[in-house]
C-alpha cells in the first residue's frame, strides 16, 4: 500500500477480518476432522503494521518457532505462514499420530496444508476466483527471521502491511499459534475492489 497518501480504513480492515473469519471456519472444520478433536480458530485479528514494528508484533523475534510456509498464486497473490511454538508442535503431532511414531515435520506440513488449503479455498470462492497454493515448506528458526523474508517481498513500496492473524485451540489445548496471511498490494486492491471498497 502506498500509505503515504492513502490510509486503509477501519471498514476495509473489518472486511478483511470477515474474509479471514470464513476461511478460518473452514480450516477449523478440516482440522477437526483429521485430528478427531474440537478445533477452534479465533476470530481473525486484522492489523495494519509498520515494518519497523512487525518483528515485535508477533512476540519475541528471537524465540525459536516452527513455520509452515506457502505462496498463493493466480487471482490472489500473497504468502501464508503458520507459526507454532516448538512445544505445541510436539503436542499436535502426538494428537495427529494417535500413538504412532510419525515425523513431527511431516505431520505439521500436512496440517499446514489442510489449514491453508481450506482457508484459501474459502477466500477463492468468496471472490469467485482461482487461488493456488505452492507446496508447503517447513523451517525451524527465530521468529523474526522466519517473517522478514516475506515482509520484504510485501513491502517493496509500502512501509506498512496488512496482517491477518488467528489463534487456535485443539481439544483442551490452547495453541497460541498464528495463521498469517500477507497479501501483495495488487491483490489487496483487487479484493477491496471486488467488494466495492475504495482503497
Amino acid at each position: 500500500m502506498e500509505t503515504n497518501d492513502k490510509q486503509i480504513n477501519q471498514m476495509q480492515l473489518d472486511l478483511l477480518g470477515e474474509l479471514g473469519n470464513i476461511g478460518s471456519g473452514n480450516a477449523a472444520t478440516a482440522l477437526s476432522q483429521i485430528l478427531n478433536k474440537t478445533v477452534y480458530l479465533d476470530v481473525p485479528n486484522v492489523e495494519l503494521c509498520n515494518i519497523s514494528e512487525v518483528g515485535k508484533s508477533f512476540g519475541d523475534p528471537e524465540l525459536k518457532k516452527t513455520a509452515v510456509f506457502f505462496q498463493t498464486q493466480q487471482d490472489v497473490k500473497g504468502y501464508v505462514l503458520l507459526v507454532f511454538e516448538d512445544e505445541d508442535v510436539k503436542k499436535i503431532s502426538k494428537i495427529a499420530a494417535g500413538g504412532m511414531e510419525i515425523d513431527a515435520d511431516s505431520v505439521m506440513t500436512e496440517i499446514g496444508n489442510i489449514v491453508a488449503g481450506s482457508y484459501i479455498g474459502a477466500l477463492a470462492s468468496m471472490v469467485e476466483g482461482k487461488i493456488d497454493l505452492t507446496p508447503p515448506q517447513i523451517a525451524h528458526d527465530m521468529l523474526g527471521s522466519l517473517i522478514d523474508n516475506i515482509v520484504s517481498l510485501i513491502c517493496v513500496v509500502a512501509d506498512e502491511l496488512v496482517i491477518i492473524k488467528t489463534k487456535m485451540t485443539i481439544g483442551n489445548e490452547t495453541i497460541p499459534s498464528f495463521f498469517i496471511l500477507f497479501l501483495e498490494d495488487e491483490s489487496l486492491k483487487k479484493l477491496l475492489d471486488y467488494f466495492n471498497f475504495e482503497k
Partner: peptide, 11 residues
Amino acid sequence: NILIAPGLGSC
C-alpha cells in the same frame, strides 16, 4: 548501550 537487530533472516 547495546544496539541489537534480533532475528535477521533475509534482512
